[in-house]
Amino acid sequence: MKYEFSEEDLKEIDAIKAKYPEVMPATLPVLWLAQNKFGHVNPEVQRLVASTLGLPEAHVHGVVTFYTQYYEEEKGTYVLDVCTCLTCQLCGGYEMLEYFEEKLGIKQGETTPDGRFTLKEVECLGACGYAPMMQVSNETYVNNLTKEKVDKLLDDLRQDKKPEHEKVGMPQRKNI
C-alpha cells in the first residue's frame, strides 16, 4: 500500500504548522492526523510524515516510539490498553491483563486473528484513582475493572458498541 496525504490533508498540515514558530512541534499533531487517516504510523507512514514536514526520519521515529499512543504497526479495530503501572498493578492490573489474554487467546502486544482486538500493556494513564483501569483505542477510559466489566466490554465491542464515557464521582466533603 502506498501512503499519501491528500490535498485536504496537506492543507490541514499547513494549518497545524502555522500554529508553531518552528516545524518540529508540528510532529505530534501531524502524526495524529496520519494515524487517524491510516490507522497506524508504521515506518512508511513515519517517512511520509518526515518528508512532508521536512524533518529527519530518525526524529519522527523517536517521537513515535516514545508514546504508546502511536501505533507503530497495523493494529486491530479496537486497541485495548490495559494499565499495569504501580497503582493499577497493586489493585489487580495484572489479573485484568491476564483475564483479557485468556479470553482473547492472545498475549499482550498481539492482535486476534480476526483483526478485531489488539491487547497492550501500558504505563500509567493518569487515572490511578479508578484503578485498575484501561483505555479503548486511545479514547474512552473503562474504570474500576472487574471480570464482569471485561466480559461486557468485549461483547459490546464485538457488536461495535463502544463504551460510554463513565463519570466516576469522587467523595466530597459535605460539612463546609
Partner: peptide, 26 residues
C-alpha cells in the same frame, strides 16, 4: 544533529528501555 548534520540517529522508546538507533530500514 549538530556536527555531521546527517540527523541519522535518535533516541527511541522511553524510561529504562531507551537507546539510540536509526529510523527503521535506515
Amino acid at each position: 544533529d549538530e556536527i555531521s548534520k546527517s540527523h541519522q540517529l535518535t533516541i527511541v522508546q522511553r524510561g529504562d528501555n531507551n537507546f539510540p538507533i536509526t529510523a527503521p530500514g535506515r
